[in-house]
Amino acid sequence: MRRVKIIEEKFFIWISAFMTYSLIAVLIFIILVIFIKGFGALNWDMVLKTPRGGYYYGGEGGVLNAIIGSLYIAVGATLIAIIIGVPAALYLNVQLIRYRRTQNTIRYFLDALWGIPSIVYGAFGFSLMIFFGMNASLLAGIITVALLIVPIMVRTFDEVLSTIPKGLHEASLALGSTRTETAFKVLFKQGFPGFITAVLLSFGRGIGDAASVLFTAGYTDNIPVNLDEPAATLPLAIFFQLGSPIPEVRDRAFASAIILTGIILTISIGARILSKRYSRTNLT
């Protein structure tokens, strides 16, 4: 019997470790493929120049338009998602603390919204644009991506807030805090690492999504200077370059993917550093 248990234990440890390391291996494999295929095409022109005439047929230039467009859309949408998402998550966990059924209903709807494919958001954004007589633009892209990432922001932050012990909530109220003070001065601070995770997930989804911006943000070789101008995005730039019959352009698609991955990694590391610095200063 004891021998069976030992084998069972070893098997479980082995299979768990195998699955974990396979996952990491897949991630490394994806990054390696992108690097191998795209590194040769990566140069400063790619990052610092907008496409010149015939770029998608092997001409000169880069994807600066798409880099800036993606950053505009992702940052704008993330800011909107923070403005909507943080109060919503705090409301769920502070004001609705007595109303579990309402909390669960709202969570159910948010989960459903999270699960809706981004192309549906794109179609919805497109309908809104037609309704308001707008053209494909940076603003339409920002609003559509914001709609896409708000549920991610709210639910991710909400999950962290819901793990904060009720005792801390009570301790703050017992000191004479109002619920709003408890929400912002105690729960937000306690859940700050979760907030950073929510921002990162939302930003990552926002900057990497192609379907929601396909109809709404449009595509242009120029860098948008106004909200009503169309904006290029990196996922669409990758899509268009990958569709090219010219191998050199397809390699540029992988180089663009390296840039997109680099942006996400940089934002992620930067946010983690900021979060730690915040913990050391503001939380002390």
């Binding site: 012990p165 005792g167 017992a174």
Partner: peptide, 28 residues
């Protein structure tokens, strides 16, 4: 809130606020 300030609460396990020792005491 004013009523609760008339009553200090000490629960089964301590719940320090997510701030410094100083700010915990200064909070109220």
């Amino acid at each position: 809130p004013a009523l609760r300030q008339k009553m200090g609460l000490l629960s089964q396990r301590p719940y320090p606020l997510p701030v410094s020792i100083y700010k915990n005491v200064a909070y109220g």
